[in-house]
Design a protein around this nucleic acid. Structure first.
Lengths: 134, 134
DNA sequence: AAATTATATACGCCTTGACAAATATATTCT
DNA sequence: AGAATATATTTGTCAAGGCGTATATAATTT
């Protein structure tokens, strides 16, 4: 069996990107840490589904999690590998020209300005958004 | 059920990239059209396996095939979609810094200079290689 | 401590796709 | 036409992973 470590590592990254829900999650995290509860509301998908996809991304090393009380905040974790990093750059660049992704981002902005519109009470507002949405 | 055409299309591209054998095939095709027989010899993998992966890439619209007598030549097919295109650019860029991929490319160069070393007689030499290997 | 809230994991079901081995197809050679 | 060559597809098996439902865990509130 021939060794082919690098191709395998790259393939693993692409597998992590090979799902529309995971791409949408990554897009929402592009510039900020986001709480799970927002993912659920904005993507309008079941909470276990969101959690499973976040776990997948965490396993793939693309995302890291931080607990804050009851809430879990997820954020992009830049890979140590330069190749993976440049590919992620390209991916995020395409998000900026994508209608659906922009729509998701807008929903996140709005939700954070008026969290009372969601099913959430006292949901944590990502600090990075205060300045952006001003 | 919400529409999310674009994320689905992107995810499909990544699924096509999520396999080490397919990545190696794409790398070999990066700058030239390549005959199936070379893939088999260089990657040292069974012919049906190579063919199946090439069919997958063709289905995903990343690659196109051209028949020439008994031989099938495969080459990169640049996607119409700008997003997919820029991602492919990033992918090929990482190939250039990847040891394993460079080793594969070298093996292709050598095989084309001395096709008699392979199990192939009268294998077609990719025209693009004449100038590169001079 | 009991109830509530937020998130994660387990379970069962189903689809996709990877593989090897066998077989089919297409083209060329004799 | 028949044999040989190059490639593609089929078949059967297996593992990964997607989904919804149910349940477990963790932190907070009362």
């Amino acid at each position: 069996m021939a060794r082919q470590s690098k191709p395998f590592a790259l393939a693993r990254l692409f597998a992590a990107l090979a799902d529309p829900t995971r791409l949408r999650l990554l897009n929402l995290m592009a510039e900020r840490e986001v709480c799970v509860c927002y993912f659920v509301e904005i993507l309008q998908q079941g909470q276990p589904k969101i959690s499973r996809h976040l776990a997948y991304l965490r396993n793939a090393g693309i995302v890291s999690a931080r607990r804050e009380g009851k809430w879990m905040h997820y954020s992009i974790r830049r890979p140590r590998d330069a190749a993976a990093n440049s590919i992620l750059d390209a991916v995020f660049a395409t998000f900026e020209n994508n209608r659906e992704m922009q729509a998701d981002s807008l929903r996140l902005l709005r939700a954070c300005c008026k969290p009372e519109l969601l099913a959430l009470q006292r949901a944590p507002v990502p600090s990075a958004l205060h300045s952006e949405a001003q």
